[in-house]
């Protein structure tokens, strides 16, 4: 599934990024690379964007960006 479908409070592990070039790099700069554990932390009061916890940092992604991040839910992954 993709990151935008991850329910709030749930953990998952990033499996792939559906992006190329600059946008991909920016997400990797923010710590989203395959194998990273991620948790949907909170959603903006207006419904979008959502803040994700990636190794202690709170990274905010808009829904369109979250849709390009493939994750596998359920397992806790390496921390």
């Amino acid at each position: 599934m993709t990151l935008d479908e991850l329910p709030r409070g749930q953990r998952a592990v990033v499996t792939a990024l559906d992006l190329r070039g600059g946008e991909r790099r920016r997400l990797m700069d923010l710590g989203l690379l395959p194998g990273a554990a991620i948790r949907a932390d909170m959603t903006s009061p207006l419904g979008d964007p959502t803040a994700y916890e990636v190794r202690g940092a709170l990274v905010v992604l808009r829904r369109g960006q979250a849709r390009t991040v493939h994750v596998e839910a359920g397992c806790s992954g390496e921390s």
């Binding site: 920016r26 923010l30 964007p49 709170l58 990274v59 905010v60 992604l61």
Partner: peptide
């Protein structure tokens, strides 16, 4: 113009 969104909550 190019656009890459990023925001972090410190």
């Amino acid at each position: 113009e190019s656009s890459v969104y990023s925001l972090e909550l410190p």
